[in-house]
Each structure stands twice: as C-alpha cells, then as structure tokens.
C-alpha cells in the first residue's frame, strides 16, 4: 500500500511544503539563579544531629496508658523538647506537640 502511494505521488506535481517552525527566543536567565545566600541557615540542619545532654530534655504533663482490661496503667511523660547539635556544632531544637490521645 505504501509503494502504491509513492507511485501515485510521483505521477502528480511536486508538493509545496512549509519550512521548519521558528521557536521563540528563550528568556534571559536571571542573575539570581544558582546563587546561595551568604551566611548560615537560621533553621534546619544538614544532618548528623547529636544529643549531648539527656537531662536537657523536657516533657509534657503525665499521660496514662491503660491496658485494654484496665488492670495495668503506665504513667509516662510525652517528650516535648530535645536539644541537639548538628555536625557543625550548631544547636538544633526539636519541639514535639502534646499528644491528643
């Protein structure tokens, strides 16, 4: 079928084709691209967090965890704040919300 179409096209006048589409000009790359702010981040960390002093932890008020049969009750303090330092020695504070259940 494809050969038949090519044969018929040869018998007819040559096709008049449009040229390639001309793409619009690209926007200019802004000067700020690829640049980082100078100085250290005010929050967040690059990782390698280390807790240096366990006693610095703080806790929310006591919560109860009761066994399904009601005989056992665990009293625990939900963790509230843990202080850490990152690899560069910068302080990082993790603050947890109080449990709602």
């Amino acid at each position: 079928m494809a050969e038949l179409e090519r044969a018929i096209r040869k018998l007819g006048p040559a096709e008049q084709r449009d040229g390639l589409f001309q793409p619009p000009a690209a926007a200019r790359i802004p000067d700020s691209a690829g640049k980082a702010p100078n100085g250290l981040p005010k929050s967040g960390s690059g990782g390698d967090l280390t807790e240096e002093n366990y006693a610095d932890r703080t806790y929310h008020e006591n919560k109860e965890l009761v066994s399904t049969d009601g005989l056992l009750t665990i009293i625990y303090k939900p963790i509230k704040v843990v202080k850490m330092k990152d690899a560069s020695g910068n302080p990082v504070t993790l603050t947890f919300a109080a449990p709602t259940v």
């Binding site: 066994s67 399904t68 056992l72 665990i74 009293i75 625990y76 259940v101």
Partner: peptide, 21 residues
C-alpha cells in the same frame, strides 16, 4: 529517677497494651 523513667512513645502512638493471650 531519670534511670527509671519509661521510654515515652515520642513519635509513635501505642495502640493496644495488656495481656492478650
């Protein structure tokens, strides 16, 4: 008393607790 403090479920939520057998 710190050494007796129980590990608190900081990031997880305990679902069931007791004698299930």
């Amino acid at each position: 008393m710190e050494d007796k403090r129980l590990p608190s479920p900081a990031l997880g939520e305990p679902r069931l607790f007791g004698q299930p057998y």
